[in-house]
Design a protein around this nucleic acid. Structure first.
Length: 195
DNA sequence: CGCCGGATTTAA
DNA sequence: TAAATCCGGCGA
């Protein structure tokens, strides 16, 4: 997937609508956020290359997984040429197949929310953990990324949970979502944009 | 080596 | 609005 080699904010838009598959579970990506290299004060790459963010510097199409708030795994798709750090956080998805498996992985007994709204739920639905860090999403077997038809309408707005970043970086509208999906958090903060 | 705080979720 | 809960990054 060549588009993953471009800037993170471009790759992020291209990832919307694509599928993430593992075993019997198929998710359709509905919400993403782009994170750049050391120049992006909101990015994990802001302090340079470390053991944790190493996959961000690798080739595009790999997974970058990290543990947050002591309980959640976050799935990123590495973008940009090898040697540059950038990634796209998968923030939301719809369950296309394998709903039973997804629900069985939920901690709470609530079977209500069908969509995976929020990055923690996305990784949980796919049953991911640190063993998938660095996994090649373009290779068959295991966790895979698959192309899908483009969206009809896209929304964009500022990224969430980055109050520690510079005001300029907080203002960047690098959060993107499918306007036609309900698997999108805080829709009111988003506005329509052209592709 | 110890401390601080985070790309979150959930329930009250 | 806060608690759950862990590890990375930074300063000492």
């Amino acid at each position: 997937m060549r588009h993953l080699a471009g800037p993170a904010e471009v790759a992020a838009q291209a990832l919307l609508g694509q599928h993430l598959t593992r075993e019997d579970v198929i998710l359709r990506i509905t919400e993403v956020e782009a994170y750049g290299g050391p120049e992006d004060s909101a990015s994990h790459a802001r302090h340079g290359r470390t053991a944790r963010n190493g996959p961000m510097w690798g080739p595009p199409g790999r997974a970058y997984l990290y543990f947050c708030y002591g309980m959640h795994w976050m799935l990123n798709v590495v973008t940009g040429p090898e040697g540059t750090a950038a990634a796209v956080l998968i923030r939301g998805a719809e369950v296309v197949a394998g709903l039973e498996t997804v629900l069985s992985r939920r901690k709470t007994g609530k079977a209500t929310p069908q969509p995976c709204t929020g990055p923690g739920k996305v990784a949980q639905a796919l049953g991911l953990d640190r063993t998938f860090d660095g996994h090649d999403l373009l290779a068959p077997g295991g966790l895979e990324l698959r192309p899908a038809p483009p969206l009809a309408q896209m929304l964009a707005g500022p990224r969430l949970g980055i109050g520690f970043a510079s005001l300029d970086d907080q203002a960047r509208r690098w959060r993107f979502a499918d306007a036609d999906s309900r698997a999108v958090l805080l829709r009111k903060a988003l506005t329509p944009v052209q592709f």
